[in-house]
């Protein structure tokens, strides 16, 4: 019980912090903007975590789907002058539909073949955006993407209002992730991650479950992409670049792949690190590279996973030997 209270307290403190943050930095657009971008990327990384971290299928097409979401919103709101909210919904739906089709094919491959296949899919999406001038504006990109339309008295003109809007979507995304992972569906995904054959022999249709997990993960990417387009007001083909997907992967691995708070921790850490190391430009990879390598070797489940492991050791709990993952808070709902 103490543990749960403890965890609740941490979450409450974080949420309150996030809520009052704009009050502290009310006149610092830059800080708010960086935070908001971080939240958007975190939403995307939560999606990646669901398929790669919990279901065990490393999808490297994630930036591609992020871009589909971004461009769908961008094109619909600029060319078609569609209402922002409708465009946002369509962006998520269209990205999911693309995920469904590409996932049906991609999930016929396994393990590293799946990673390679999705990497190629991601690259093809990049090429498509880059070359299809007529639709996407090609290398010039799309400019003049509008901010969200007001909802009644709520407008989204200030950095603060965008911050709160994105925060709301982030909290929703995290909430959905938690609900999925702590449910039987989540354990089904974890079972598939552990061993697909074993999962099958327990009666799990692994194909459908992987596909659903993939589509949900892609929907996260689509949502994040659409929000990104509206925040930055300008997008170019590089939102689909492999650079982007490896950034997502880095946030995920360092934060903690297969953990529920890892995506947020990793993303926010790197977003701010990148800001601080900005003056070193390309040299920052010299720092990030080795960090990543050390992380994968010593803390395969990242900062959050490492934290839980150390905590469990201090409490003299036995950890599973065969798995790098560790389920620190078994939900109580199994016996009802």
């Amino acid at each position: 019980m103490g543990k749960i209270l403890n965890q609740r307290t941490v979450i409450a403190v974080l949420v309150i912090f996030a809520l009052v943050f704009p009050l502290i930095y009310a006149d610092n657009r830059y800080v708010l903007h960086v935070m908001t971008i971080g939240f958007i990327f975190a939403i995307s990384v939560y999606g990646m975590n669901l398929i790669a971290g919990f279901t065990g299928q490393l999808s490297l097409a994630h930036a591609g789907f992020f871009a589909i979401g971004a461009y769908t919103l961008g094109i619909l709101t600029t060319r078609n002058e569609m209402n922002f909210w409708l465009a946002l919904l369509l962006a998520v739906l269209l990205t999911s539909a693309a995920g469904l089709v590409l996932g049906l094919i991609a999930l016929r491959t396994k393990e590293h073949f799946f990673a390679i296949y999705t990497l190629i899919v991601g690259y093809l999406i990049y090429l498509l955006i880059d070359k299809w001038d007529g639709l996407t504006g090609g290398v010039r990109g799309l400019i003049g993407i509008p901010i969200p339309d007001p909802i009644g008295p709520l407008t989204f003109e200030s950095a603060t209002s965008m911050y709160y809007l994105v925060l709301a979507f982030l909290l929703l995304s995290i909430f959905i992730s938690v609900r999925i992972v702590r449910s039987l569906t989540g354990r089904t995904y974890i079972a598939i991650r552990n061993s697909e054959e074993l999962a099958q022999t327990l009666g799990i249709n692994t194909r459908i479950n992987k596909l659903v997990s993939f589509v949900i993960s892609v929907a996260y990417a689509g949502l994040a992409g659409a929000l990104y387009a509206s925040l930055t007001r300008f997008i170019g083909p590089d939102v689909a670049s492999t650079n982007m997907v490896f950034n997502f992967l880095m946030y995920l691995i360092v934060g903690g792949i297969g953990t529920l708070s890892g995506p947020l921790v990793g993303t926010m850490l790197f977003i701010w690190l990148e800001q601080f190391l900005r003056s070193y430009q390309e040299y920052h990879l010299l720092i990030f590279g080795p960090i990543l390598v050390l992380m994968v070797i010593f803390f395969p489940t990242g900062i959050v996973g490492g934290f839980y492991k150390i905590k469990a050791k201090l409490q003299h709990k036995k950890l599973p030997k065969e798995s790098k993952y560790f389920n620190p808070v078994p939900e109580k709902s199994t016996e009802k």
């Binding site: 354990r187 079972a191 030997k321």
Partner: peptide, 18 residues
């Protein structure tokens, strides 16, 4: 061949998946 990172009861419940 268990699911090592699930609890004992979660493992058992996975067996009742159908």
């Amino acid at each position: 061949k268990l699911f090592p990172d699930m609890t004992v009861q979660q493992n058992l419940m996975m067996g009742g998946f159908v």
